[in-house]
Amino acid sequence: MIRTPEPELMTAEDQARAYAEADFSEPHEAFVRRFAERFPGFSSGDVIDLGCGPADVTTRFARAYPGARMLGVDGSAAMLAEGRKRLASSELAPRVTLRELFLPCATLPRESFDAVISNSLLHHLSDPVVIWQSARAAAKPGAPILVMDLMRPPDLPTAERFVNLYVGDAPPVLQQGLLRVADRRLRARRGEGPARRRRSRAPHRRAGERSPPRGVGDAVTACWSVGVTEAEGPLPGGPQATAVIACWSVGVTEERDPC
């Protein structure tokens, strides 16, 4: 697999807000439905969401499984702040905890979770093995694991076409974020150095002007696809858990101290 450098952690507040406000209902509901399909025996217990971002999947999962106690972990304080806002007014708050944590992390509770979920974290990790090691370490023996990640358009013009078509109304930060990833991938393929920020061809907005997030989720889904299950089987290094793996291209995170 050709891996794509992904140096960014989503730490910027406006970026975190754009993602938190975007409507990802369709892909995220599909994520929960896919978990229910693949793991019909799971009903309750402790669940960890690796790379929970603004906790949209975390809360949807908690809503779908009233017997689940959720721990969402993410390396971005800005994302977690958005997640806490989401939880503040929610009846789910007693069952959902969010914690800032950067993987790999030695203090991640070991063999403590009845299920492990992760959506769109893989492409942020410099070493993809980290996600499997973390999942394996956190999961109780036999616990279900569902990892899903993005699928990218084959080339930048396609990515730009999709962004124009589907997220033309989205906040520029979201549009640029999507294009940047595709741009890096292409440059990596061509053997070029790290990509510079690339401007979208989508109509730009005046400073301070915000677009309603409505419809963005579908567009993002359309751009990047979801539910890409590339392989299924035991985790590398041990058969303790069943994993549905949805790995796609992955990237390079910023150098940071663990945890």
Binding site: M151, Y166, C223, S225, G227, V228, T229, E230
Partner: peptide
Amino acid sequence: TYDTVAAELRIELK
């Protein structure tokens, strides 16, 4: 997988 192969198709359909 079909999800992978049909990714662009689903874009069109949506």
